[in-house]
Simulated scan of single mutants.
Amino acid sequence: MITVTIYTHQDDITLDQLKADLDSLQSTVEHQVVTIDIDTDETLRKEMHGSTPLIKVGPYTLRPPFNRQDLEVTLRSAQDRVKYYQDDAEYIKRVERGRRVSGADRFSYWFSKQYMLVLNALVLLFVGLPFLAPVMMKQGLTGPARVIYAVYSPLCHQLSFRSWFLFGEQAYYPRELAGIEGVISYEELTQAETIDLNAARRFVGNEMVGYKVAFCQRDIAIYGGIFLFGVIFALTGRKIPGLKWYLWVLFGLVPIGIDGSSQLPSLAKSFFPSWMIIRESTPLLRSVTGLLFGITTAWFMYPMIEETMLETRKILGQKMEVLKQTQKANR
């Protein structure tokens, strides 16, 4: 049987006449009617405001104004289409899938509504685990802590002079090149004349200096920024419009690119000409540029994800409502 879906709202004065016209056409083309109130769904309300009542019959759509003859033509077209494909196995399978709500449908619908909760939880876990490593080291759980350091090692340089430390004299031990006064430098800490990058990666701290967080300062700021915007985006109902790509480049990529790349000569002076400026960034600059990159990246990406999820919610929400009303009518 053909299903006619009417999209309407409570103030549609033509709805009763429309239903009467459809009822009079039952003898011509047998069908069942499903009515969806667009006011119950924000997506439908935005999409169809001022365009109701709207009729959908299979692949055919009728937008107002239309009359009884238009309805009859549409119903007959849908009926002819069903007859044409009645022996098509693939078409029959698609129709059968459309008549039931699968587990995948339910999961997709749930995820499309709760995806920000899932993403925020994953990002929080991802940026939170590195802090668990120094906590475990402090408690003497060196084995599990080493596992966390090892897991995050391919994802981050973990250089001690660009990382945060917990439970020690200072929160960070920068290189002398950073020019930060009043703190113990990494060179003073290690009593080394030259920087050994492998040693700086391996060093996780001790009782005196504290224990290193398994993520560097900039990475913590990046994922912290992603999490921060994700929380704001979720709390505002996912209604924040996306950031323009050129603003993402200007405020997200450019600062972190300049601050990060300008440090490279300080790690391999022999590969760069003598006139090259040698500098080392500071924890503040790494955190600010990382935070900007994280926030702007999430601001650029999350609204685009929402557009996809919005379409998923609309399609599956309509499918579930149609099946619900159809099953109720057939009881």
Rank of each mutant, 00 (worst) to 15 (best):
T3P: 11
I6P: 09
L15F: 13
L18I: 10
K19F: 07
K19R: 13
D23N: 13
M48N: 10
G50A: 06
S51Y: 12
P64W: 04
V73G: 00
A78R: 01
Y84I: 01
K93G: 01
E96K: 14
R97L: 13
Y109T: 03
S112A: 15
L119R: 00
N120T: 04
A121F: 12
A121Q: 04
L125E: 03
F126E: 04
F131G: 03
L132W: 02
L132D: 01
L132S: 01
A133P: 01
G140R: 05
G143R: 06
G143F: 06
S153H: 13
R162D: 08
F167M: 01
Y173C: 01
I180L: 15
E181R: 05
E181S: 14
N198P: 00
E207T: 09
V213S: 00
F215S: 05
Q217G: 10
R218V: 06
Y223I: 09
F227T: 05
I232L: 15
F233N: 01
A234V: 02
T236K: 11
G237R: 08
G237Y: 07
W245D: 00
W248F: 15
F272E: 02
P273T: 07
S274A: 15
R279W: 10
E280P: 03
L291T: 11
M301P: 00
E311Q: 12
L316M: 09
K324G: 12
A329Q: 15
R331G: 15
